[in-house]
Nucleic acid binder design. Structure first.
Lengths: 198, 198
DNA sequence: CGTTGCATGTAAGGTGTTACATGATTAC
DNA sequence: GTAATCATGTAACACCTTACATGCAACG
C-alpha cells in the first residue's frame, strides 16, 4: 500500500506569508517584473504588512515558479531591453484562493520600538523620551498622509474594492498611532510634573 | 599605528533588540531564572513588542553573559532544587542605558495578517471575510482587557512609572485595533450592499 | 498516577536581511 | 558627466522558531 506523498494538491501547500503576498500582487492581473512587484509593495502593502528586500522578492518568485504557481517569460521593454515578467498560473490562483479562505490567521505581529524605549524610560532622560515619542507621532502622521495618497491613487478606476477598504483601514491605523503617541506624550509630561510642554 | 579594535567600549555594541529587551527585564532588579523572564515577557512585553520562544531567551542570556552584560549564579530554590538566576552587571547597565538613549529607533514593525486577507478579498467569499475581521475584533478586545489587567497588577506599589505609561498605551492600542476592525466590518457590509449585518 | 508547571537546554531549519556584483537608461 | 532609476541576481549571515530531550515537584 503506497502512502500518498505528502503535500499532494489537497492541502494548501504551506508557503511563507510573504510568498502569498507576492502571489497576491500577481493575482491583480498585471505581468510585472520583480522590480515592479517591489514598487507595488512599497505603494500599499508596506502600510499594513510588508516591506521586503528586493532579494527576498526574487527568492519568493523562484519559490513560486518551483511550486508551479507562477510562470515567467522574457519580455522586451519599450527601450528594447529584455526583462523578466511574471504571471500567476491557474494552479497558483487556486492555491491562493484556498489559502485566502482556509489558512489560519495568526494575530498581527507588532514590534514597537518606541514603546520598548519608553518601557525602559527609567534608563534615559525625560528629554530623550519626549524626543522619541515626538518622532513616532510625526512618523505616524506622515504615514497616514502617505497612505491616504496611496489610497486615492489606487482607487481611481481600478475597481479593486477590497484594496480600497484596506487602504482606508491603513489610513485610520496610522492616524490612531499618531493619536496614541500624542496621548503618551501627555502622560510623560504629567510624569515629569509639568502641565505644559516645552 | 594600531587600529582600535572594532567594538571597543565606545559604541553601544550592536545586539538584537530582543537581547536588549531581556537585559531590560534584568534592569528591574530582580534575579530571575530564564523561565521567569519569559513569564515577565508574557505578562507585559507581548502587548507591544515581543513573545519569544523559551529557547530564544536562553540564547540571548548566553549572548549577554558572553558580552559581560549579565552574570548568572546557581540559586537554591525553596524546594531545594538548584536553578540558574541571572543579574545585570554594571557594564550591562551602562550599555543598556547607552542603547536606550542613543540607538536609532526604526519604525514599528507590523505584519497584519487579517488586513492582508482583506486585501486579497476578491479571492474569498464575503462570509469568510466577515469571519476573519470579526475574529480580529474579538481578539483585539480580549487583548485590551488582558493588557488592562496586566497594567493593574503591574502598577500596584512598584513605582515603575514608565512601565505603567506603556501599559496604558498598550490598552489604548488594542482598543484602537478593535475599533478599526469594527469600522472595516462596516465597510465590508457596505460593499456587500447590506445596511445591516446578519 | 496523570497532568500541569517549573526549569534548562540542543539541533535543525526556515525566514529574511545586508552586502556584493553587474550593467543599461534616463534625468539633471 | 554623474546621479538616480531600472533591473537581476548571489552569498553570507542574523534572527528566531519548532521539535526534541530531560527531569523534578505539586496538584488533583
Amino acid at each position: 500500500m503506497v502512502k500518498p506523498s505528502p503535500r499532494s494538491r489537497a492541502e494548501p501547500a504551506t508557503l511563507p506569508a510573504t510568498a502569498w503576498a507576492v502571489l497576491g500582487v500577481l493575482s491583480f492581473g498585471e505581468e510585472p517584473t520583480g522590480y515592479e512587484i517591489r514598487k507595488w509593495a512599497e505603494h500599499i502593502l508596506r502600510f499594513f504588512y510588508w516591506s521586503p528586500a528586493m532579494s527576498q522578492i526574487y527568492a519568493e518568485l523562484k519559490r513560486l515558479e518551483k511550486a508551479g504557481y507562477a510562470t515567467s517569460r522574457t519580455d522586451v521593454a519599450a527601450d528594447g531591453r529584455p526583462r523578466r515578467v511574471y504571471a500567476i498560473t491557474p494552479d497558483g490562483r487556486d492555491a491562493l484562493a484556498a489559502w485566502a479562505s482556509d489558512a489560519p490567521i495568526g494575530p498581527p505581529v507588532l514590534k514597537h520600538g518606541p514603546a520598548l524605549r519608553v518601557w525602559l524610560g527609567h534608563l534615559a532622560g525625560p528629554e530623550r523620551l519626549r524626543e522619541v515619542v515626538t518622532e513616532q507621532r510625526d512618523r505616524a502622521q506622515r504615514l497616514a498622509e502617505e497612505a491616504e495618497h496611496s489610497r486615492r491613487v489606487a482607487v481611481t478606476g481600478t475597481g479593486w474594492a477590497h484594496a480600497e477598504i484596506v487602504a482606508r483601514w491603513a489610513v485610520r491605523y496610522h492616524e490612531a498611532e499618531r493619536d496614541l503617541a500624542e496621548l503618551m506624550l501627555a502622560d510623560l509630561d504629567e510624569l515629569a510634573g509639568r502641565g505644559a510642554p516645552g
